[in-house]
Design a protein around this nucleic acid. Structure first.
Length: 257
DNA sequence: ATGACTGCCTCTGGCAGA
């Protein structure tokens, strides 16, 4: 079984690329972030043609997350991250499908820092830790995957110096991410690539893709029940070079039955 | 180099992204 995550940066603009990727790689479950559309405009029928059913949490203009599953409709467990009734950003959706608990997250970017957006990011990470702790307590096979907007270590960025002031790699962001791992979650890509050097994002600007100026911010965190079943993982890097590509590439994990 | 690019909704420029 393959579970993939893809920050698509606009489901309308990206639909041809997204359908192409689904058809080529056929993940069992696909988590999408930054669909950037309201619920009414979600192109569910396009996915049904490829054999996928979906749940989604959209928002006008930005954010928005979705979970697609092959051959069955994901059973929604939760939409929206608990812990702040005033937070209306569509950044979290959680479901049960194919025998796995799947949470799809779009963690706030947090720039510029310091400032209110960075404070929101850090609060969001505390709330995420609470929710992920509750999932761990259920002792179910679970994965929390998506755009974490955190560069975990210096080896996860082309130039730590160039990015030093960025919210993605501030000590507070990294510490909050490290606490998740300390709670018992396994960073799949990091585990299989201990020396780093794997990127999931390349900026549109300044020829970042051509220069390989990327970093790793899209992650798949596995609960112990799934970490034991991790057979392979990777990123679909080649898709970044395609026409009208997202600035992120898909991340995936392959699990033994 | 206070730069760069892209998508969205549209106050077709401003916001958001990372």
């Amino acid at each position: 079984m393959r579970i993939a995550s893809f920050n698509i940066n606009g489901i309308k603009a990206r639909l041809p690329r997204l359908l192409e990727w689904l058809d080529e790689t056929r993940p069992t479950i696909a988590c999408l972030q930054e669909i950037k559309t309201q619920d009414e405009a979600f192109p569910a029928t396009e996915f049904e043609k490829l054999g996928y059913q979906a749940i989604w949490h959209g928002q006008k203009g930005f954010n928005g997350v979705a979970i697609l599953a092959a051959g069955e409709c994901p059973k929604e467990v939760r939409r929206g991250l608990p812990g702040d009734p005033d937070d209306e950003h569509a950044r979290y959706i959680e479901a049960e499908t194919h025998g796995v608990r799947v949470a799809c997250i779009y963690l706030p970017n947090g720039n510029p820092q310091p400032g209110p957006k960075f404070e929101y990011k850090l609060r969001w990470m505390e709330r995420l830790r609470d929710r992920m702790g509750a999932i761990l307590a259920e002792e179910v096979p679970a994965v929390v995957t998506g755009d974490y907007n955190v560069i975990p270590h210096d080896q996860d960025v082309w130039s730590p110096r160039a990015m030093a002031a960025d919210a993605l790699m501030q000590p507070q962001s990294r510490d909050a991410y490290a606490r998740l791992l300390g709670d018992g979650w396994t960073d799949a890509i990091a585990t299989h690539n201990p020396r780093g050097g794997v990127w999931t994002y390349w900026d549109y600007q300044a020829g970042a893709w051509q220069r390989d100026h990327g970093f790793r911010i899209d992650h798949a965190l596995l609960a112990p029940e799934l970490a034991d079943r991790l057979a392979a993982c990777g990123v679909d890097k080649e898709h970044r070079g395609r026409e009208r590509a997202s600035d992120h590439v898909p991340v995936w994990v392959e699990l033994r039955d």
